[in-house]
Protein backbone atom coordinates (compact mmCIF):
# COMPACT_ATOMS: atom_id res chain seq x y z
CA UNK A 1 0.00 0.00 0.00
CA UNK A 2 1.31 3.48 -0.83
CA UNK A 3 0.00 7.00 -0.42
CA UNK A 4 -1.23 7.25 -4.02
CA UNK A 5 -3.24 4.07 -3.78
CA UNK A 6 -4.69 4.99 -0.39
CA UNK A 7 -5.69 8.50 -1.50
CA UNK A 8 -6.98 6.97 -4.73
CA UNK A 9 -9.21 4.56 -2.85
CA UNK A 10 -10.41 7.33 -0.54
CA UNK A 11 -11.17 9.56 -3.54
CA UNK A 12 -13.12 6.70 -5.09
CA UNK A 13 -14.99 6.10 -1.85
CA UNK A 14 -15.72 9.83 -1.57
CA UNK A 15 -17.16 9.87 -5.10
CA UNK A 16 -19.42 6.91 -4.38
CA UNK A 17 -20.64 8.44 -1.10
CA UNK A 18 -21.13 11.93 -2.62
CA UNK A 19 -23.36 10.49 -5.35
CA UNK A 20 -25.37 8.31 -2.97
CA UNK A 21 -25.90 11.24 -0.57
CA UNK A 22 -26.79 13.63 -3.42
CA UNK A 23 -29.54 11.33 -4.63
CA UNK A 24 -30.73 10.42 -1.14
CA UNK A 25 -30.76 14.00 0.29
CA UNK A 26 -32.22 15.69 -2.79
CA UNK A 27 -34.50 12.68 -3.41
CA UNK A 28 -33.66 13.15 -7.06
CA UNK A 29 -31.34 11.59 -9.61
CA UNK A 30 -31.71 14.43 -12.12
CA UNK A 31 -28.63 14.71 -14.30
CA UNK A 32 -27.33 11.30 -13.23
CA UNK A 33 -26.81 8.59 -15.83
CA UNK A 34 -28.40 5.41 -14.55
CA UNK A 35 -26.59 3.52 -17.29
CA UNK A 36 -23.18 4.50 -15.96
CA UNK A 37 -24.23 3.42 -12.50
CA UNK A 38 -25.35 0.04 -13.82
CA UNK A 39 -22.00 -0.34 -15.57
CA UNK A 40 -20.18 0.48 -12.32
CA UNK A 41 -22.26 -2.12 -10.48
CA UNK A 42 -21.24 -4.66 -13.15
CA UNK A 43 -17.59 -3.56 -12.83
CA UNK A 44 -17.58 -4.16 -9.07
CA UNK A 45 -19.51 -7.42 -9.31
CA UNK A 46 -17.19 -8.94 -11.92
CA UNK A 47 -14.05 -7.62 -10.25
CA UNK A 48 -14.80 -8.51 -6.65
CA UNK A 49 -15.97 -12.10 -7.06
CA UNK A 50 -12.64 -12.92 -5.40
CA UNK A 51 -14.39 -11.91 -2.16
CA UNK A 52 -15.66 -15.47 -2.26
CA UNK A 53 -12.31 -17.10 -3.01
CA UNK A 54 -9.51 -15.18 -1.29
CA UNK A 55 -8.98 -12.94 1.72
CA UNK A 56 -6.35 -10.21 1.40
CA UNK A 57 -7.03 -7.83 4.32
CA UNK A 58 -9.83 -6.31 6.35
CA UNK A 59 -9.32 -3.07 4.42
CA UNK A 60 -9.53 -4.84 1.05
CA UNK A 61 -12.62 -6.85 1.93
CA UNK A 62 -14.48 -4.00 3.63
CA UNK A 63 -13.82 -1.55 0.76
CA UNK A 64 -15.06 -4.10 -1.78
CA UNK A 65 -18.23 -4.73 0.22
CA UNK A 66 -18.83 -0.98 0.58
CA UNK A 67 -18.26 -0.35 -3.14
CA UNK A 68 -20.62 -3.15 -4.19
CA UNK A 69 -23.23 -2.17 -1.61
CA UNK A 70 -23.21 1.51 -2.56
CA UNK A 71 -23.24 0.73 -6.29
CA UNK A 72 -26.36 -1.39 -6.01
CA UNK A 73 -27.98 1.06 -3.58
CA UNK A 74 -27.38 3.85 -6.12
CA UNK A 75 -28.88 1.80 -8.96
CA UNK A 76 -31.86 0.97 -6.72
CA UNK A 77 -32.42 4.66 -5.90
CA UNK A 78 -32.23 5.65 -9.57
CA UNK A 79 -34.39 2.93 -11.10
CA UNK A 80 -36.76 2.17 -8.26
CA UNK A 81 -37.15 4.64 -5.43
CA UNK A 82 -36.64 7.89 -7.33
CA UNK A 83 -37.32 6.60 -10.81
CA UNK A 84 -39.78 9.48 -11.38
CA UNK A 85 -36.79 11.85 -11.36
CA UNK A 86 -34.69 9.72 -13.70
CA UNK A 87 -34.05 11.61 -16.94
CA UNK A 88 -34.18 8.65 -19.32
CA UNK A 89 -34.49 10.83 -22.41
CA UNK A 90 -31.02 12.29 -21.93
CA UNK A 91 -29.50 9.03 -20.67
CA UNK A 92 -29.51 7.58 -24.14
CA UNK A 93 -25.97 6.24 -24.62
CA UNK A 94 -26.02 2.81 -26.32
CA UNK A 95 -24.15 0.82 -23.64
CA UNK A 96 -24.23 -2.32 -25.78
CA UNK A 97 -21.60 -0.56 -27.91
CA UNK A 98 -19.40 -0.61 -24.80
CA UNK A 99 -20.20 -3.95 -23.20
CA UNK A 100 -19.90 -6.13 -26.32
CA UNK A 101 -16.48 -4.88 -27.55
CA UNK A 102 -15.15 -4.83 -23.98
CA UNK A 103 -16.38 -8.39 -23.48
CA UNK A 104 -14.72 -9.51 -26.69
CA UNK A 105 -11.46 -7.76 -25.83
CA UNK A 106 -11.42 -9.33 -22.35
CA UNK A 107 -11.60 -12.79 -23.92
CA UNK A 108 -8.83 -11.97 -26.43
CA UNK A 109 -6.44 -9.90 -24.34
CA UNK A 110 -5.89 -11.08 -20.77
CA UNK A 111 -3.16 -12.37 -18.46
CA UNK A 112 -4.67 -15.81 -18.03
CA UNK A 113 -7.54 -17.58 -19.77
CA UNK A 114 -9.40 -18.47 -16.59
CA UNK A 115 -12.92 -17.57 -15.51
CA UNK A 116 -12.00 -15.16 -12.70
CA UNK A 117 -9.16 -13.59 -14.67
CA UNK A 118 -11.33 -12.93 -17.74
CA UNK A 119 -14.02 -11.40 -15.51
CA UNK A 120 -11.38 -9.26 -13.81
CA UNK A 121 -10.05 -8.15 -17.20
CA UNK A 122 -13.60 -7.44 -18.38
CA UNK A 123 -14.18 -5.27 -15.28
CA UNK A 124 -10.93 -3.36 -15.88
CA UNK A 125 -11.80 -2.63 -19.52
CA UNK A 126 -15.43 -1.82 -18.69
CA UNK A 127 -14.48 0.57 -15.90
CA UNK A 128 -12.32 2.57 -18.29
CA UNK A 129 -15.37 3.45 -20.42
CA UNK A 130 -18.18 3.19 -17.83
CA UNK A 131 -18.33 6.97 -17.33
CA UNK A 132 -19.10 7.63 -21.02
CA UNK A 133 -22.91 7.51 -20.64
CA UNK A 134 -22.62 10.07 -17.81
CA UNK A 135 -20.33 12.40 -19.81
CA UNK A 136 -22.58 11.91 -22.86
CA UNK A 137 -25.65 12.86 -20.78
CA UNK A 138 -23.96 16.04 -19.54
CA UNK A 139 -23.05 16.96 -23.12
CA UNK A 140 -26.70 16.45 -24.10
CA UNK A 141 -28.20 18.43 -21.22
CA UNK A 142 -25.40 21.00 -21.59
CA UNK A 143 -24.92 21.38 -17.83
CA UNK A 144 -24.38 19.51 -14.54
CA UNK A 145 -25.28 20.21 -10.91
CA UNK A 146 -22.25 21.33 -8.93
CA UNK A 147 -22.48 18.32 -6.60
CA UNK A 148 -22.41 16.06 -9.66
CA UNK A 149 -19.21 17.75 -10.84
CA UNK A 150 -17.61 17.08 -7.45
CA UNK A 151 -18.64 13.44 -7.80
CA UNK A 152 -17.07 13.25 -11.26
CA UNK A 153 -13.90 15.02 -10.11
CA UNK A 154 -13.33 12.53 -7.28
CA UNK A 155 -14.15 9.64 -9.59
CA UNK A 156 -11.73 10.82 -12.25
CA UNK A 157 -9.03 11.67 -9.71
CA UNK A 158 -9.10 8.15 -8.20
CA UNK A 159 -7.76 6.43 -11.32
CA UNK A 160 -5.28 9.26 -11.95
CA UNK A 161 -3.91 8.58 -8.45
CA UNK A 162 -3.81 4.88 -9.32
CA UNK A 163 -1.57 5.74 -12.28
CA UNK A 164 0.85 7.37 -9.80
CA UNK A 165 0.48 4.25 -7.62
CA UNK A 166 1.55 2.06 -10.56
CA UNK A 167 4.55 4.28 -11.24
CA UNK A 168 5.45 3.98 -7.55
CA UNK A 169 4.98 0.19 -7.56
CA UNK A 170 6.97 -0.18 -10.79
CA UNK A 171 9.85 1.77 -9.30
CA UNK A 172 9.85 0.33 -5.77
CA UNK A 173 8.25 -3.12 -6.20
CA UNK A 174 8.90 -3.72 -9.92
CA UNK A 175 5.19 -4.49 -10.11
CA UNK A 176 3.71 -3.87 -13.55
CA UNK A 177 0.24 -4.72 -14.91
CA UNK A 178 -0.03 -3.56 -18.52
CA UNK A 179 -3.79 -4.23 -18.76
CA UNK A 180 -4.64 -2.17 -15.68
CA UNK A 181 -2.24 0.61 -16.69
CA UNK A 182 -3.45 0.98 -20.28
CA UNK A 183 -7.11 0.89 -19.20
CA UNK A 184 -6.32 3.34 -16.40
CA UNK A 185 -4.72 5.77 -18.85
CA UNK A 186 -7.72 5.56 -21.18
CA UNK A 187 -10.08 6.05 -18.23
CA UNK A 188 -8.22 9.12 -16.97
CA UNK A 189 -7.85 10.65 -20.45
CA UNK A 190 -11.64 10.48 -20.88
CA UNK A 191 -11.93 12.89 -17.92
CA UNK A 192 -9.45 15.45 -19.26
CA UNK A 193 -12.11 17.59 -20.92
CA UNK A 194 -14.18 17.51 -17.73
CA UNK A 195 -11.13 18.22 -15.52
CA UNK A 196 -10.44 21.33 -17.60
CA UNK A 197 -14.02 22.58 -17.22
CA UNK A 198 -14.06 21.68 -13.50
CA UNK A 199 -10.86 23.56 -12.73
CA UNK A 200 -11.60 26.59 -14.89
CA UNK A 201 -15.29 26.91 -13.98
CA UNK A 202 -16.51 25.02 -10.93
CA UNK A 203 -13.49 25.88 -8.77
CA UNK A 204 -14.13 29.54 -9.64
CA UNK A 205 -17.68 29.27 -8.34
CA UNK A 206 -19.30 29.16 -11.75
CA UNK A 207 -21.80 26.53 -12.85
CA UNK A 208 -20.55 23.87 -15.22
CA UNK A 209 -22.30 24.48 -18.53
CA UNK A 210 -21.08 23.19 -21.83
CA UNK A 211 -21.37 25.29 -24.97
CA UNK A 212 -24.58 23.64 -26.14
Amino acid sequence: MNVFRLTGDLSHLAAIIILLLKIWKSRSCAGISGKSQILFAIVFTTRYLDLLTSFISIYNTSMKVIYIGCAYATVYLIYMKFRATYDGNHDSFRVEFLVVPVGGLAVLVNHDFSFLEILWTFSIYLESVAILPQLFMISKTGEAETITTHYLFCLGLYRALYLLNWIWRFYFESFFDMIAIVAGVVQTVLYCDFFYLYITKVLKGKKLSLPA
Binding site: D9, H12, D50, I56, S57, N60, M63, K64, Y162, A180
Partner: peptide
Protein backbone atom coordinates in the same frame (compact mmCIF):
# COMPACT_ATOMS: atom_id res chain seq x y z
CA UNK B 1 2.99 -17.79 -10.43
CA UNK B 2 3.54 -16.56 -6.91
CA UNK B 3 1.42 -18.47 -4.47
CA UNK B 4 -0.34 -15.58 -2.76
CA UNK B 5 -3.26 -14.14 -4.71
CA UNK B 6 -1.86 -11.30 -6.83
CA UNK B 7 -4.85 -8.98 -7.10
CA UNK B 8 -4.51 -6.86 -3.99
CA UNK B 9 -5.74 -3.62 -5.60
CA UNK B 10 -9.35 -2.47 -5.65
Amino acid sequence: LDDDYDKDEL
